[in-house]
């Protein structure tokens, strides 16, 4: 089949762009192990409110300074509604829903996950800037969808952590 010279060049360039996209994807995912939140764990949505872990949601700060946030996203709010986490440390979120699908998005960060009833969404991130952040639900979940919000406060040196070693230092 005859292909015009310019078109050959164009197709070559298009192919090259796609190879670059693929390579950068390969590098970030395989090379640097950057993965989207893809945790596989199931839970009975009917038992979320009485579950040992999700029935008592909240923030736990570990000895190494990292934190785990356990949360419920429900119609129409987040529980707990306000969370405080340390700056510059790994924060692992574990979220589930007792009712419909919700979204969990911390505005102006890359924390963004779907929360599906029957499943536990889990991902780890860090916040490098202290201050107050807005948490919103970004999946339609009913007539209260747009009022479903929460607050994340990233603290420089929360009282809890004062006794902890400096960032990056060995415990």
């Amino acid at each position: 089949m005859h292909v015009d010279l310019y078109e050959r060049i164009w197709m070559g360039a298009a192919g090259a762009i796609i190879v670059v996209f693929l390579a950068s994807m390969g590098y970030t995912t395989l090379g640097r192990a950057v993965q989207p939140p893809s945790h596989v764990e199931t839970i009975d949505p009917a038992s979320v409110r009485s579950d040992a872990e999700f029935g008592a949601p909240g923030v736990t700060v570990h000895e190494d300074g990292s934190a785990t946030v356990v949360m419920q996203a429900f119609m129409f709010g987040f529980l707990p509604n306000e969370i405080r986490v340390p700056r510059g440390r790994d924060v692992t979120f574990r979220i589930t829903s007792p009712d419909v699908i919700h979204g969990f998005q911390i505005v102006q960060t890359n924390a963004n996950a779907m929360v599906v009833p029957g499943y536990v969404s889990q991902f780890t991130t860090r916040f490098d800037r202290a201050g107050e952040y807005l948490i919103v639900c970004n999946e339609y979940c009913g007539l209260g969808h747009h009022v479903m919000q929460g607050t994340l406060i990233v603290e420089d040196r929360p009282p809890l952590l004062r006794a902890l070693p400096p960032e990056g230092g060995a415990p």
Binding site: G15, V40, V120
Partner: peptide, 23 residues
């Protein structure tokens, strides 16, 4: 991509195909 309950490997495979479809 940000759903729970689907392993990252499958997401990667589908995203790979997605880039090819640009051609």
């Amino acid at each position: 991509l940000v759903d729970p309950g689907v392993e990252a490997g499958w997401k990667l495979f589908h995203t790979f195909n997605t880039q090819l479809v640009l051609f």
